[in-house]
Design a protein around this nucleic acid. Structure first.
Lengths: 206, 206
DNA sequence: TATTATTGGAGAGTATCACTATCCAATCAT
DNA sequence: ATGATTGGATAGTGATACTCTCCAATAATA
């Protein structure tokens, strides 16, 4: 399969495929001469993954490259790899200054109330802090009770997810990293639809 | 309060405040002369809301304008207003062609399995379809069982949210529209942290 | 074999976005 | 009186995600 066939298979302009190659999201094909290389089905699947991450998941090309890099080359510490993946996911957070004794007060309080184990360097802690601060800034702070309710439901979801994690290390990384990124839009859409369902049932007196 | 004081109160450059005024995100101050206007605390709060929406929530200025417009001027149909708000939220979806008899097969199957009421024109249906298609394209399709598990948990969250919706129409719109947008980053961060918690407990043999 | 088409690769061009900077005459503060 | 500030308009900036143009080398076809 040459580049034009690959582009046709992925339903993209050739220029865009070249762009992904240049940016290192897509592995080069096997060069058969100075001006020819062949691509196979793995390249088609990779492009589909790139489009999934830059489309519905909403990652930039830069962020997608990081996520793909972690899946390609996970390292031996699943925990650290997942941490790096979460750092690459939006919303972006700037790291706290070293001298701040309590950089994430809202997140800390929330996680303590939930009784959850957490690593303060994990990017999601800063993301939670920023999200909670945003609800306050916007004049709609989240109550402790709501936070506990959310935390409890999401913890159950997390247990469901982890129970189904593959044993084999490489598959586990792929499952965890891609599952975190790819399933998030599904969760948001389901929540929006659940709101609509509940509202509709109440309006009908159900 | 003049524009420079407003900018200082919001910790933003004056040029940025002018930009929000130009873009219609921020209501003009009361003009006291040809080259002077006064702003008050409502403008400070509005800027905080704008920053919350364009920051952690990740909306573009365009999308934030739509959301703010709905909160400012909700119309009398809460249902339709929420629909418009969800349309403005990412991920963006292009509307299905009119002649397609079954534009959202995956979303339809999922919602039927969950027994949920839904309006096919609701943007979240298309968003769910795109999210599910993305998981398939990426080679990690969501199983029916997982979809049911997610749907069930999120439905409980939605019930919690709707039980706490204010009665008064204007407050209800604000609660629903802003709650949908502002609480989503909290949910994603909590899920990521719940994954970490569950993983850590399992690693410790808990 | 001649000729046309396509390729990989490099470079530059384009459109959008979210600011950011510069100007201006009018007005305010001192 | 004089310098600073204002609202408003216009233009400039840097980042992002493509998209286009060129090129000589090679492939495909006549």
């Amino acid at each position: 399969m040459r580049i034009s066939a690959l582009a046709a298979a992925a339903d993209l302009p050739v220029a865009t495929v070249k762009y992904y190659l240049r940016e290192g999201l897509l592995h080069p094909g096997v060069a058969t001469s100075a001006t020819q290389a062949t691509y196979d089905d793995s390249h088609v699947r990779r492009i589909r993954l790139i489009r999934a991450l830059t489309g519905p998941v909403g990652l930039s090309v830069q962020q997608a490259r990081t996520i793909l890099g972690l899946v390609d080359d996970p390292g031996d510490d699943l925990y650290a790899t997942l941490g790096r993946a979460v750092s690459a996911l939006p919303p972006p957070v700037d790291e706290a200054s070293v001298d701040d004794p309590d950089p994430y007060p809202r997140a800390r309080a929330a996680l303590e109330a939930l009784g959850q184990v957490y690593d303060p360097h994990y990017a999601a802690v800063a993301q939670l802090e920023a999200a909670l601060a945003a609800t306050e800034d916007a004049g709609m702070p989240i109550s402790d009770a709501r936070l506990r309710a959310y935390g409890h439901q999401l913890h159950e979801l997390a247990e469901y997810d982890l129970e189904r994690m593959p044993q084999e290390p490489h598959s586990a990384v792929e499952y965890t990293v891609l599952g975190t990124a790819l399933y998030e839009p599904v969760i948001l859409a389901l929540r929006r639809l659940a709101h609509q369902d509940v509202a509709a049932r109440r309006a009908l007196g159900g």
